[in-house]
Every structure is written in C-alpha cells, then in structure tokens.
Write a protein that binds this DNA or RNA. Structure first.
Lengths: 347, 347
DNA sequence: AATTAGCACTCTTACTGCTCGATTGCTAGC
DNA sequence: GCTAGCAATCGAGCAGTAAGAGTGCTAATT
C-alpha cells in the first residue's frame, strides 16, 4: 500500500527528528518542524496509522514515536534528500589527503581516519581481493634457503609469503623457476587459478623439478583467493560511546565484539550486487551485530574496485551525511590518482 | 618504615580479596580468610594504620578497605606468591600453538589470542624493533619503474617499502646498486645508520650515480629506526566489559581510546630497563590511560628479543595469573623454536 | 601494652509513594 | 476530513524510610 504524500512527509520528519535528538518525536514536534498548517491531532491520527503499518514504534503510551527498522529502510531508499557538505568539512577532508600517499596501506589509513573524524562513527575499510584480480607477474627473491614470493597483479602487489627452497640451489635455478611460474600463472585471475585446482592439471611431467615450487606457489595463490581476513582495518572504535544507544555496557560490548571479528566485518562491508553504495540496517533480533547499521561504498582506483570503505554505527545514523562523505572521498581519490598517474604504479 | 609481618599478611589478604571480588574487604572477611585467631577489632586497628600509611582507601565510612595503587605496587613487588597454572589451562595454551607457525605474524597472532583467552584481559603484542637490530642484507626487486626494498636483519625481514627507480634502467644497474647498498649499510644497526645522519657522510662523490637510490634507502632505514606504529596488535578489546570497573561508559570509552592509539600502547609495553617482566600500575590521575595496569614480558626467539607481549586491564588485575601465563608462553616458544630450527629462518 | 567485646554512628542501597510534565487516544463538534 | 478539548497513562525525579554493612571508639581484659 502506497503512502500518501503527507504520510511520507510525516514519516520523514520523524526519522530526521529521531536521528537528530535520539528521542521519540511527538506530534507537536512534527507540527512545528514541517506541518504548521495541520493540528497536532491530525498528525496524531496519521502517526497512529503509520504505527499500525509497522513504520513507527512507541516505547510507552506517553512517549512520542520512534522509527522502526522498516521506516529507516524506506527513508534511505526513497524519502531522504541529499545533504551538501559544508566548506569546512570539505577542507578538513582535503587535509587528510594532502600528504604524499605512497602505498595502498597509506591510502586505506587516510580513508579510515577521515571517515571516522567527519562522521563521528567507527569506520571500516576492507582492502581489496576482488577475485577477478589478474596475476601480472610473479617474482622470487632468494634469501638464504628461502624465497620471498612477490605477486604483482593488475591492481596490487602482494609480498607476504615465503617458501622454502631446496638446499644449495643457485640463483640461476631460481630465475628459471621464476620463468616457469610466470608461464603458468601470469594472466590468470585468482579465481581461475583456484578453480583449476590440482597441480597435475597445470604442470606437465617434463618439468618435474619445478613441480614442488610451483605447487607451493599455487597454494599461496589459492589462499589469496579465499583470504580477506588480514585486510580489514577499523578506526575510531571509541566513537560508539558518543551515541546514547550504546550507554548500556551490554550493547557497547556487543559492538566492540562485532568490530573485533574482522572476517564478519568484511562480510558486512561487502557489496555483492555491485552497487556503488550499500546500506545495511540490522534489527535487534538478527544474528550478527545487534542493532547496527553499516553504510559502505566501494573504493575505485582507475576504474578498478580495490576495496570498500564505510562506517558502522547505530541504526539511528545520519545516513545523509555518511553518504555525502563517502561520495566526496571517492571523487577525491579519483582526482589524486589521475593527477599523478604513472609513478605510483605500486598502489 | 617497614611493615610488620601481620600488616603484610593483612595487606596481602586485602589485595587478594579485592582482586577476587572487586569489592572493598572488611575486617571480618580478613579474619575468616587468614587470621582466625585475631578478633576483627584488632584487624580494624591494623587496617586503620595501613590506611594512614597510604596503602588502603575507604570509599565511605561503612565500607571495607580497597587497596591503593601503592598497595598494588608493594603487592606485585614483594607480597604476591606464585600461582601454578592448572593442567586444563596449560592444555588450552598448547592448542593455540599446535598448528604450523610459519611467520612472525602468525606467532604474534597466536600469542595475542592465547593471552586474551586465558587471562580474560585485552592483550597487546608489539613486534620488534629493538634498535640494536643489525642489517644483514638489502635486496632490491625491480618491478616496472619501481623496486621493492627488502631489508633482512639478524632477527627479521622487512618488505613494505617501495622506491622509484630512474626511467629505463636495466637489471644490471639494479644489481650494482644493490651491491653498493650492501657495502654501505650491511652489518650496521638501525641506530648506527640513523645516527650517521646525512647521506654525504656515507657515500663518496665517486659513486654519485647511486647517490639518489642510496639516500632513498637511507630514508627508509631511518624511518624504521623510529617507527613502531604498525607493529602493534591488540586482541580481545571486548574483554574489558567483563570487569565491573568499566561499567561506566566514560571509563570504557577511555579504555577503548587508549588501545586505539597504537604508538602510545607500544610505549606502555616497552621495557626499558631490560627486565624480563614489567608491571605498570597507573593511577587515575596520571596522564595516559586512566586507571589501567599493563603487565608485559619481552618475547625472545633464539636469545634475541623480537618484541613484547602483555595485557592491559584494570588495576585490580590478577597479576599472579597473568605472569604465570606469560612465563609459560615464553617457555613454549623456546621449545617450538629449538625443536624445528633451521627452515624457519624467515621468522 | 596489646587485644577484645560491645555499642553507637555513618553511609549505602533498595524500596515506596508522591507529584509533575509529556503525550497520547478519544469524542464531539466544525 | 479536520480539530479542540479532555481524560488517561506513563516516566522521571524527589523525599522519606528501613535494613544492612562496616567502622571507630571506649572500657574492660589478658
């Protein structure tokens, strides 16, 4: 059943008011806020209707109305208007990107910091691992009896894996092994490599001496395809205490636990339908995070998605503001990348 | 003024009782706990004396006594006896180290997890960076127009820095540069290199073509000498809510803020006088973390200090238990390292 | 001189009852 | 369909009370 324009206006006003004050909104508040030509009694009738439709809840009989999760959902999908950032805010955001950004880590950290400082919510940034990432080259750096494996992809560089080498091997051998690795793995996506599965499907009998090293690298690549755990960072966990819904230690604990579980957090930030933005509103009784909302956007560098960034906080979140900030950051990153292209290829 | 044996016994009992129950301890409690042959009135007299000496505080007139920071200090330094871990606890600790540990990161993570799970406090692990670390070799891995700089030291491997290379340089040039870098920097400690300061002191005019690359690497090494920020991990931040002193949202916020500031946290864990263990007890009114205690131990692999690990929590902390756990973990790491020496040289 | 029993005193906590203010739902009339 | 007016409901805050915990002090005892 579609809502009348007046109902929409009232509902929107309840949500805005509730976001602003954290208190249930009364019929009188709404009258003053957006409907001075209606009496409070009329508004009360509308509120009562909205409540029975499931959009509003009343903590007790002599309190105003608070929006339900359903109302927030409608609000973010249809009712909410845009908010422009103030000049001051834009300036503050810019200062965070003024310094030389010389790695993805740097960028990720700046995004996390600016998000939390402007929005006043805990920020979360998930680095990368779109499984469509394509291996560009694989390099081996020999060190004593082991080698550092460096995997260069079309959007990133991974350099956290070591493998053992056979004893008393010389540099030439390593160079040849490197060649083979590139022959086998270059120009394939992580997903393709992982799905290929067994090493026997990949390397023929002839090259048996490189078989061991290839299978070790394959194991690393397969792990990369599934792993995202170590690429989640959060910033501003303490911001949660600024919001009265987390005055209750139980709630606060549950929130802090949620952001400690990085894998689940990455899951929450993920955006499977490929939209630019994702807004998740979780009701109290759902399984993972009790009464949180998560607003996130994918982060793009040169038209490639390298991760996502967002905030996690109370359902009573200032969605407008958060979306504006995410939008601005994405535009800013675009500018930074296109302005000094070339020598930051490692990003 | 030295305390009589009975005063010590009473003080110890107050601390133990307070650690156990989180409530002020009464004269009657102490009588039952450790002095059944004294009357509660006698104990009251002693308590009164201990209070005027600054060891005890009384929240209000009809409450028992709680230990002051001074009392905790004396307790950990002199009064406390040892606690043996239960078989169950030892078994639980062992399970955390059962799997293959194939990097320092892995080890650090396991230590953090086991610490928080056994002690029920938030754990903190700081990786490395003892400034006496000695550069073993420096490697350059050429990638397009930049190179990954890998620094191998006597206790670790660093591989998170990139430098730009001059355009259209070939591999030979990079190899020669690498040789020069090793000639200049190998066998020096981070501290020595950082103190040498200017590049002019290090490289003579003759090798001016490698001057730029050397000074870039020098900048990285200097940064390493000062930087410890990214090597701090925490686990179990939510544990703080298990302790009643953090029921107050203000306190909880302050705690969460403290563990968000990784640099300061590293500072707190640091152990400058070179002792195996360090116990810091911070009074409410001190500057950094309000009302926290930090218990930490240095982590040694093959007689080299590679970092420190500990817990942070309320001043009313179970110091005995924490120390036992730290001790056990250190012994366990010793065993692990000496059992499979050799092929984990990258650790 | 140290210890103890006894008692008065103080302070916290929990509960109760009360009032005031906010807000609603309902009804009757416009 | 809208509105004015009114009774009803509930929470927040405050004062008062009673119970309980634990102390400090004093005088008597060892």
């Amino acid at each position: 059943m579609a809502l009348s324009d007046r109902k929409k206006k009232i509902l929107c006003s309840v949500v805005d008011g509730y976001i602003e004050t954290a208190n249930p909104v009364s019929s009188k508040d709404i009258q003053q806020r957006c409907l001075p030509d209606c009496s409070s009694a009329t508004i009360r009738n509308e509120l009562s209707a909205l409540e029975s439709m499931g959009y509003l809840v009343q903590p007790h009989v002599s309190a105003g109305r608070a929006p339900s999760a359903k109302a927030f959902r409608l609000y973010v999908d249809e009712l909410m208007d845009n908010e422009r950032l103030t000049d001051k805010e834009i300036e503050l955001i810019n200062t965070y990107f003024n310094h030389q950004i010389d790695s993805v880590e740097d960028m990720v950290e700046s995004v996390a910091k600016v998000l939390t400082s402007i929005t006043n919510y805990t920020s979360v940034v998930v680095k990368g691992h779109n499984n469509q990432e394509r291996v560009d080259q694989i390099r081996l750096l020999k060190l004593a009896d082991s080698a550092l494996v460096v995997i260069v992809t079309d959007s990133s560089i991974y350099k956290d894996s070591f493998i053992d080498l056979p004893k008393n091997i010389d540099t030439k051998w390593v160079d040849r092994a490197e060649k083979w690795l590139n022959k086998i793995f270059s120009n394939h996506t992580f997903e393709q490599i992982a799905n290929q599965g067994n090493i026997d499907n990949i390397i023929s009998e002839d090259f048996a001496i490189y078989r061991t090293i290839c299978s070790k690298v394959l194991a690393i690549l397969i792990k990369m395809n599934s792993n995202s755990k170590y690429d989640v960072i959060t910033e501003g966990a303490d911001k949660i205490f600024e919001h009265p819904e987390y005055d209750d230690p139980q709630k606060a604990k549950s929130f802090i636990s949620t952001i400690e579980h990085k894998e689940q957090l990455a899951e929450l930030l993920s955006n499977k339908d490929g939209l630019a933005y994702s807004i998740k509103i979780c009701e109290e009784d759902e399984h993972i995070p009790s009464g949180c909302s998560v607003v996130s956007a994918s982060i793009n560098l040169k038209d490639k998605t390298v991760g996502s960034a967002g905030v996690i906080g109370p359902v009573r979140m200032n969605y407008k503001k958060v979306l504006s900030v995410l939008d601005h950051i994405n535009k800013l990153l675009d500018d930074i990348i296109s302005n000094d292209s070339g020598d930051d290829e490692q990003v």
